[in-house]
C-alpha cells in the first residue's frame, strides 16, 4: 500500500515535470507561440484573438499556473474582448482551428485507438508467446529455425512498409479484407471487426516477432538454471516443469515490455493510424502537426505521457505480484 502511494506520487511528479517541459517548449521557446497556435490557414482576426486569449502578455508563471489549473478544474479563455470560451476540466487546451476544447477531440478519437490497441495486443501476445515457447522447447529443430527467421524478419520490417504491402495484396488485389477504418463496435460490431482486422494483423506481426525473441531467450536462460535441473531430477513431469517453473520465471520480463508497449500504443498508434487512415489519437496528433495546431499537439503529448506513466506504475505493481524475488520497497 505504501509502495503504491509512493509510486503514484512519483508518477505525479514525473507528469508535472513533463507538463512543465511541454508547456515551456511549446509556449515559451517559440518566438511567437500565437503564430504556432494559429496554424497554416491563419487569418489576422484569429491571430489577434489568440494573442489575446493565450494571455501571452501575462508573466510565464501565471500562464503556467492557469495551464495546470485547467488540467484539474477547467478554465475559461477570453473570447474577443468580453465573451469567454469555457473549457471544462480536465482542460488540456483549446483548439482555435476546430473551435473545440482539446479534451473533446481526444474523447472522440480515443475509441479508435483503444480498438487498435485492444485487438493487436491480444494477437501479438498470443502469437509471440506461443512462437517463443515452441521454439525454445524445440530448440534446434526446423520449427525453431522457422520461428527464428520469422522473428528476425518481423523485427526488421517496418509498419509503414508492411502495412502498404498487405493492404495492396489483401484489400486491393485479392479483395478478401475490408479496407481499414473505424466504426463504433457498439453500432456495428461485425464491420468494426472486419475493418480493424488488417491493422491488428500488421501490428501484431511486427510486434509478436520481438516477443517471440524475448520469450525464447528468456525460456532458454531459465532452462539452464540449476533449479530446473533439480525439478526434473525430482521426477516432475516435463510439462509441469516447463509451464510452472520455466514459463512463470521467463514471463516476468515480458510483462514489463508488454506494459510499456501497451502504454505507448494507447497514447496513439501514430504510424499504424497514419498508414491505415484510422481516426485515432495518433492520427489526431499527426493532423495537428501538419496543420500546426499547437494546443492539440500539446494536449495529445500530455495525454500520451499520462498513459506511459500509468503503464510504468502498473508494470511495477504487476511485477511484484509475478516475481516473489522483487520486494516492494
Amino acid at each position: 500500500m505504501r509502495y503504491l502511494v509512493r509510486r503514484l506520487v512519483g508518477g505525479g511528479i514525473v507528469l508535472t515535470i513533463v507538463s512543465a517541459v511541454v508547456f515551456g517548449i511549446f509556449y515559451i521557446l517559440p518566438a511567437d507561440p500565437a503564430r504556432l497556435a494559429c496554424g497554416k490557414s491563419c487569418t489576422p482576426e484569429l491571430m489577434a484573438k489568440i494573442r489575446h486569449t493565450l494571455e501571452i502578455d501575462q508573466p510565464i508563471a501565471v500562464q503556467y499556473e492557469r495551464f495546470v489549473k485547467g488540467i484539474f478544474v477547467g478554465r475559461d479563455y477570453l473570447k474577443g474582448t468580453t465573451a469567454q470560451i469555457h473549457c471544462p476540466g480536465p482542460c488540456l487546451g483549446y483548439s482555435y482551428q476546430t473551435d473545440e476544447p482539446v479534451t473533446f477531440l481526444i474523447r472522440d478519437r480515443l475509441p479508435a485507438t483503444l480498438s487498435v490497441a485492444f485487438g493487436a495486443s491480444i494477437l501479438w501476445l498470443l502469437v509471440g508467446l506461443l512462437t517463443g515457447i515452441v521454439s525454445a522447447l524445440r530448440r534446434g529443430t526446423w520449427i525453431d529455425k522457422a520461428a527464428q527467421a520469422f522473428a528476425l524478419g518481423g523485427a526488421s520490417l517496418q509498419i509503414y512498409f508492411v502495412g502498404l504491402v498487405l493492404q495492396f495484396i489483401f484489400v486491393d488485389k485479392l479483395q478478401i479484407m475490408h479496407s481499414p477504418g473505424y466504426v463504433s463496435p457498439f453500432q456495428n460490431p461485425k464491420e468494426w471487426f472486419l475493418e480493424m482486422l488488417l491493422p491488428w494483423i500488421t501490428l501484431a506481426f511486427l510486434l509478436s516477432a520481438i516477443y517471440a525473441r524475448l520469450t525464447r531467450a528468456g525460456m532458454l536462460e531459465i532452462m539452464s538454471e540449476d533449479y530446473i535441473r533439480t525439478a526434473r531430477a525430482k521426477g516432475l513431469k516435463k510439462t509441469t516443469v516447463n509451464l510452472k517453473h520455466v514459463l512463470r520465471a521467463a514471463i516476468t520480463p515480458i510483462v514489463t515490455v508488454f506494459g510499456l508497449d501497451l502504454g505507448q500504443l494507447l497514447g496513439g498508434a501514430v504510424i499504424t493510424e497514419y498508414v491505415f487512415n484510422i481516426p485515432g489519437l495518433g492520427r489526431l496528433a499527426t493532423d495537428a502537426v501538419s496543420n500546426v495546431d499547437l494546443p492539440v499537439i500539446v494536449g495529445t503529448v500530455m495525454f500520451a505521457a499520462f498513459f506511459i506513466v500509468v503503464a510504468n506504475i502498473a508494470v511495477d505493481l504487476l511485477y511484484s505480484r509475478l516475481d516473489p524475488k522483487v520486494r516492494m520497497r
Binding site: 504556432l36 505507448q264 504510424i271 496528433a285 502537426v289 505521457a305 506513466v309
Partner: peptide, 14 residues
Amino acid sequence: AFPSILFALAITPV
C-alpha cells in the same frame, strides 16, 4: 515518459 514519436513530430516545427 515522453511519447517519443509523437513528441518528435510535435517539437519539429517548434
